Computed example of a mutant assay.
Amino acid sequence: MIEEPAPLRIARDLRRPAADQVAAIAAHPTGFVVDAMGGAGAMAAGIAPLPGLPDRACGPALVAGNRPGDLLGTLAAVAFAEAGDIVVAETQGFQGCAAAGDRVLGMLKNRGAAGFVTDGPMRDLEGVQAVGLPVWATGLTPNSPVSHGPATLGLPAQVGGVRVAQGDVVLADCDGVVVVPFDMLDRVIAALDVVAQAEHAMDAEVAAGRHEPGLIRAMLDSGDGVQWV
């Protein structure tokens, strides 16, 4: 037999990155940040912005771990949210009921949260739109969750195929949600300058009339890796 877990486990250290680290990530689109991390770090494509809401947010992750159909961890996140936080609510991908609704989001906005991300659906779309807090979710359902636990706050969770830990930086826009691990922040910020310069240079070349990728032209000119059939 195993010992019954506590209904709610909360990390003592709800760490958050420095404001200038968040601002450095927020200055770029999600695609640039993914490229600065070697081409990965985005949540599953099904996690998308809800309509009628702002589609850009960036801030420290406040991680709520929930079992399927439960939101006790999310309710704990409401009580501990600080200005600028993005609550990341794990549901283990459960699609049978909503991860949260308009009243939860209203309280988060009152606490100054910057956004809400979940791997489950939401409910109360009109109310959520009235609140105005940016939300990324898998869709909508009117089914209600419960609040029994066990749940966690501030401990790592798996959301949309990506590990999210307390204090990671979450950047979300119209393309999706990217998670920058806490211990990689300075490295990614440094790489972003190089990525941004290359992207802007390529944009200028395409705008000026460039009409083919350099990689394909190099392969055709050298013959390496090309077989004509």
Results as ranks from 00 to 15, higher is better:
Met1Gln: 10
Glu4Arg: 15
Pro5Val: 12
Ala6Val: 15
Pro7Trp: 11
Arg9Tyr: 04
Arg9Asp: 10
Ile10Val: 15
Asp13Met: 11
Asp13Thr: 13
Arg15Glu: 10
Arg15Lys: 11
Ala18Lys: 15
Ala19Gln: 12
Asp20Ser: 15
Asp20Trp: 11
Ala24Pro: 04
Ile25Pro: 02
Ile25Thr: 02
Ala26His: 06
His28Met: 12
Pro29Phe: 04
Pro29Val: 06
Thr30Lys: 01
Val33Cys: 01
Val34Met: 14
Val34Tyr: 10
Val34Gln: 05
Asp35Ile: 02
Ala36Pro: 05
Gly39Ala: 14
Gly41Asp: 06
Gly41Asn: 03
Ala42Gln: 07
Ala44Tyr: 06
Gly46Gln: 10
Gly46Ile: 10
Ala48Gly: 09
Pro51Leu: 10
Gly52Asp: 09
Asp55Ala: 12
Arg56Ala: 11
Arg56Asn: 04
Ala57Thr: 09
Cys58Ile: 02
Ala61Ser: 00
Pro68Trp: 02
Pro68Ala: 04
Asp70Val: 08
Thr74Pro: 08
Leu75Ala: 06
Leu75Gly: 01
Ala76Ile: 02
Ala81Ile: 00
Ala83Lys: 10
Val87Cys: 00
Val88Gly: 02
Glu90Ser: 15
Thr91Met: 11
Phe94Tyr: 15
Cys97Gly: 03
Cys97Pro: 07
Ala98Tyr: 01
Ala98Ile: 08
Ala98Val: 09
Ala99Lys: 04
Arg103Ser: 11
Val104Ser: 09
Gly106Met: 08
Leu108Asn: 07
Gly112Pro: 09
Gly112Ser: 10
Ala113Phe: 06
Ala114Gly: 07
Ala114Asp: 04
Gly115Val: 09
Gly115Phe: 05
Thr118Ser: 14
Gly120Met: 08
Arg123Ile: 07
Asp124Ile: 12
Leu125Glu: 14
Gln129Lys: 14
Gly132Ser: 05
Gly132Phe: 10
Gly132Glu: 11
Leu133Glu: 04
Leu133His: 03
Pro134Ala: 06
Val135Lys: 01
Trp136Arg: 05
Trp136Gln: 05
Leu140Pro: 02
Leu140Ala: 11
Asn143Thr: 05
Pro145Ile: 09
His148Lys: 12
His148Asp: 10
Pro156Asn: 04
Ala157Met: 06
Gln158Tyr: 04
Gln158Gly: 09
Val164His: 00
Val164Pro: 00
Val169Ile: 14
Val169Met: 08
Val169Lys: 03
Val170Leu: 12
Asp173His: 05
Cys174Phe: 05
Cys174Lys: 12
Asp175Ala: 10
Pro181Asn: 04
Phe182Glu: 06
Phe182Gln: 07
Leu185Cys: 11
Asp186Met: 12
Asp186Arg: 09
Ile189Pro: 03
Ala190Ser: 13
Val194Gln: 09
Ala196Trp: 07
Ala196His: 14
Gln197Ile: 09
His200Met: 11
Met202Ala: 14
Met202Lys: 14
Glu205Ile: 02
Ala208Ser: 15
Ala208Thr: 09
Ala208Arg: 13
Ala208Tyr: 05
Arg210Phe: 03
His211Glu: 12
Glu212Met: 14
Glu212Gln: 13
Glu212Thr: 13
Gly214Trp: 07
Gly214Asp: 13
Leu215Phe: 10
Ile216Asp: 08
Met219Ile: 12
Asp221Lys: 08
Ser222His: 06
Gly223Tyr: 04
Asp224Gly: 03
Gly225Gln: 08
Gln227Leu: 14
Gln227Cys: 13
Trp228Pro: 00
Trp228Gly: 00
Trp228Ile: 13
Val229Trp: 03
